[in-house]
Simulated scan of single mutants.
Amino acid sequence: MLEQRLLEKAIGEAGRLIAVEPFGEGSIARFGIEGGEHAGDWFVDSSRQHVAHETGFVIRSREGVTVARIWKHPLDPRLPALRTALDPQRLARISAAAGSDGPIDARVLAYRPGRRAVVRLTQHDVHLFIKVVRPGEAEDLAAIHGACRAAGVPAPEVVHWTPAGVVVVRDATGAPGPVAASRMPVGELLDAVDDLREHLLMVRTRRIARASVGSRVDWHLDRLAADLPGRADDVRALLPALVPHLRRVGPPRVVHGDLHIGQLFFADGAVSSVIDVDTAGLGDPADDAAAFVGHAMASAARNEVAGRTADAALLQGIADEAADRWLREPHAAALTALHLVGHGIRAVDRSPEATDLLLDRARRVAGVRALR
Rank of each mutant, 00 (worst) to 15 (best):
M1L: 09
L2F: 14
Q4D: 06
A14P: 15
P22G: 11
F23V: 11
E25T: 11
I28P: 11
F31P: 08
G32W: 13
A39Y: 03
S46D: 12
S47A: 10
R48M: 14
E54A: 13
V65G: 11
T66L: 14
K72L: 14
D76C: 03
R83Q: 14
A98C: 12
A98F: 11
S100F: 15
R107T: 09
L109E: 07
A110C: 10
G114V: 04
L121I: 14
T122C: 03
H124C: 12
L141C: 10
L141M: 08
A142Y: 00
A150H: 05
E157D: 08
V159C: 10
W161D: 02
V168Q: 00
D171V: 03
A172W: 05
G177N: 07
G177P: 05
L190M: 02
D194S: 08
D195K: 05
R197C: 10
R197E: 05
R197A: 03
H199K: 13
R204A: 13
R204H: 10
R206K: 12
R216N: 05
H220M: 05
L221R: 04
D222K: 09
R223P: 03
L224K: 06
A232N: 09
L246V: 11
R247N: 04
G250A: 03
R253Y: 05
L264R: 05
S273C: 07
V274K: 07
D278T: 06
G283Q: 01
A286G: 07
V293E: 04
M297G: 04
S299P: 09
N303C: 15
A310Q: 15
A313D: 15
I318P: 00
A322H: 12
L327F: 01
A332Q: 07
A334P: 00
E353W: 15
A362E: 02
V365K: 02
V365L: 13
